[in-house]
Design a protein around this nucleic acid. Structure first.
Lengths: 114, 114
DNA sequence: CGCACATATAAATATATATTTATACGATGT
DNA sequence: ACATCGTATAAATATATATTTATATGTGCG
């Protein structure tokens, strides 16, 4: 009997598909307003109007960025009466954002690990 | 005596500057070719021609993406004779790429943590 | 010096993306 | 049914970015 391949043990990040997926998601992270939305959704699920007032951006702009986040599968959407609530689709999103912010902050202040 | 503020204890990712920095770096991650370069540089520092042959992209294209990575402070550059070597500027870059790829792969295959 | 190689830059093009303004859609209450 | 609120979509514009092709710069060697 041959040992069956276990996909979870094949380095995901080495594959073309993996990097393609990563780039796809990274594009959704490559905008400050979307990062602000993600950070805001870290606390709890929120309606569009709530996000609009918290971030101080126009409603269509918020709507557009939420659409992008949804396209990248980073948020889930749920309707409740007239409100539409957005929530993060995965806990790791907040964690990756924190890591990214830590790295970026250090890079921009000359503090590097190597 | 007042307790002095310790910046390392103020959540970096909550500040506007932090998110700005994160978006700036995320932009550099938002391209598959650049992610392939980063992944390739995870192993060791490499010359442009080496990257070109490993990735199978044109030399000017590699040069352009390397310039972007440098602009985002993700790589350091070093000249040795006619060769120019690029290396990752920080160990966390590879780790964040791995996390991102893991998340993205799971999102695109419907496997979510929440 | 002149040639070959490694890399960068320039120019041209195509495509994508962010933002604003205006409008449409959908749900609720009267 | 109508008015209103919450949200989405459309259209217009501006800006950025990826890629290709052509050319320049820089280094080392005969």
């Amino acid at each position: 009997m041959e040992k069956p391949l276990d996909n979870t043990l094949i380095n995901k990040e080495t594959t073309t598909a993996g990097l393609q997926a990563a780039a796809f998601v990274a594009k959704a992270l490559a905008d400050e307003n979307r990062l602000r939305i993600i950070l805001s959704l870290t606390q709890e699920k929120k309606s569009v109007s709530r996000i609009v007032e918290e971030l101080g951006i126009s409603q269509p702009l918020a709507s557009h960025h939420l659409k992008e986040l949804k396209r990248a599968l980073l948020v889930n959407v749920e309707r409740s009466g007239p409100f539409i609530y957005y929530e993060l689709a995965d806990r790791r999103i907040a964690s990756i954002l924190a890591d990214l912010t830590g790295l970026a902050t250090d890079l921009l202040t000359n503090r590097t690990a190597f």
